[in-house]
């Protein structure tokens, strides 16, 4: 539990065909680990974006690692559309499961609670529902005339994210990003990269213990300074918008994408 390993050993736990939950850009995407995955190239991953993704999903698609993509959106924010995602959609390179944010979160909560499904409001009458045969409409068993959507539990093989700090005992500080906890509860194991590993238990301070994910849920931790770069990490550093824009431009073509990721891992080391 919460074993501290190298980033290569951490990434190597993601194997062909696994279902992998990824945090959104505002909750610490594990980009340093993604750089390693781009070298290791696991195939046919089922990626679950919680509840959206950006450059991280786009890179995994571009590298041919994605068999199924379950997400409410993929966007590079101010840098525009995600180019490898859009290209993969056009060519049918992966199975697309369009969702809506609270449905992904509800599926994880069902996984967290060990129940088969979770009801959510809205969605009825949308083409999102029409394209998701795995989502059902049931009658509210407690009130008449109230059809409601139920989404199945999401149980990822792995949850992967980057956070500010972990302690030697495998506890991870996630702060207010509660969806990271839901990801970890629902997943069979959780892999976390962190800016730093501290010697004192993060559970020791009553004032901040609530924002800590206990080692019970954590499979492995690796230290990765600037591990979310070029995306920001709350309280640590902001997004390198020039770098994201450079990626957005280069990744418009498959060749440009290949050229970009060739130097990605090395630039990571230079930034860190």
């Amino acid at each position: 539990m919460g074993e501290i390993v190298s980033i290569e050993a951490l990434a190597a736990q993601i194997k062909d065909g696994m279902t992998v939950a990824l945090g959104a850009d505002n909750s610490g995407p594990a980009m340093a680990a993604t750089a390693v995955l781009l070298a290791q190239r696991p195939k046919n991953l089922h990626i679950v974006c919680v509840p959206i993704s950006g450059i991280q999903a786009d890179m995994l698609i571009g590298a041919g690692c994605v068999g199924t993509l379950e997400t409410s959106a993929v966007t590079l924010g101010e840098a525009g559309g995600a180019p490898r995602f859009a290209d993969g959609i056009r060519s049918g390179a992966f199975k697309m499961m369009d969702a809506t944010c609270p449905a992904v979160l509800a599926g994880l909560v069902a996984g967290q609670k060990g129940v088969p499904f979770m009801p959510i409001r809205g969605v009825i009458g949308s083409d999102v529902l029409k394209m998701r045969p795995d989502w059902k409409v049931i009658d509210n068993p407690f009130a008449p005339d109230d059809p409601i959507v139920v989404v199945p539990a999401i149980r990822p093989d792995v949850a992967l994210f980057h956070a500010r700090e972990a302690d030697r005992f495998g506890n991870v500080r996630i702060g207010r990003q509660a969806e990271l906890a839901a990801m970890a509860y629902a997943a069979k194991t959780t892999l976390v990269t962190v800016e730093r590993i501290v010697e004192t238990s993060l559970l020791a301070d009553e004032r901040s213990a609530a924002g800590v994910l206990p080692a019970l849920y954590v499979g492995a931790i690796a230290e990765a300074k600037q591990g979310a770069w070029p995306i920001g990490l709350a309280g640590e550093y902001t997004t390198d918008t020039a770098e994201v824009a450079r990626y957005a431009k280069m990744a418009r073509s498959a060749d440009g994408f290949a050229a970009y990721i060739k130097g990605f891992a090395q630039r990571f080391e230079a930034v860190a």
């Binding site: 509840p51 959206i52 997400t71 409410s72 959106a73 993929v74 966007t75 559309g81 995600a82 995602f85 859009a86 959609i89 056009r90 060519s91 049918g92 697309m96 369009d98 969702a99 809506t100 944010c101 609270p102 449905a103 959510i120 409001r121 809205g122 969605v123 949308s126 999102v128 529902l129 394209m131």
Partner: peptide, 15 residues
């Protein structure tokens, strides 16, 4: 799903 022009996705709008 093979949209000619693909935008990011529905986000939370369907809710």
């Amino acid at each position: 799903p093979t949209s000619t022009v693909r935008w990011p996705g529905s986000f939370g709008s369907a809710y």
